[in-house]
């Protein structure tokens, strides 16, 4: 893959479901994600700047994988925000998983504001090479 994609400038907000209200008084964004599949696992990579391993919450309920990242608002005593090009907010995103993921083997790594989720494929779903015999 040599094709390059420019880094997006704007963050996308999570739409608030009709008839509900957010419980936290700050913005919530959809983190951008890459998903790729290797022979034995599926890797989900999301950009969540400002989120630490402690403020990250990954849950798997039935088939829904939910990623929540909480960011504390920046406080600068004595300083005032005079120029703003981005907003600070939480991150939330949901993915639906297929049955072929080995739920107990899921691993999450947070580094430099990037979350990597390794979802190993269940043994049955791993591709098997079938030898074709010449009859």
């Amino acid at each position: 893959m040599t094709e390059e994609k420019a880094i997006e400038l704007q963050k996308e907000q999570v739409p608030v479901a009709e008839g509900t209200e957010p419980t936290r008084e700050c913005q919530c964004f959809v983190p951008r994600a890459d998903i790729y599949e290797t022979p034995d696992s599926i890797v989900v990579v999301t950009d969540m700047p400002g989120v630490t391993a402690e403020s990250l919450d990954v849950t798997l309920e039935k088939n829904i994988l939910t990623i929540n990242g909480y960011v504390s608002r920046m406080e600068m005593p004595g300083y005032g925000l005079t120029w703003a090009e981005y907003e600070v907010g939480d991150y939330q995103r949901r993915f639906t998983l297929s049955d072929e993921v080995d739920r107990d083997g899921i691993e999450a790594v947070m580094k430099d504001g990037v979350l990597r989720l390794y979802l190993p494929k269940a043994k049955a779903a791993q591709t098997r090479k079938i030898d074709v015999k010449v009859g």
């Binding site: 420019a6 700047p49 600068m76 005032g80 120029w83 090009e85 981005y86 504001g113």
Partner: peptide, 26 residues
């Protein structure tokens, strides 16, 4: 909030003593 001209978007905090520029570059 302003539209950033290029990546990365930056926020600038200022006081009489100086500036703090922040940018999200995960």
């Amino acid at each position: 909030l302003r539209q950033a001209a290029a990546f990365p978007p930056m926020n600038i905090w200022s006081s009489d003593e100086g500036l703090v520029v922040t940018a999200e570059i995960p």
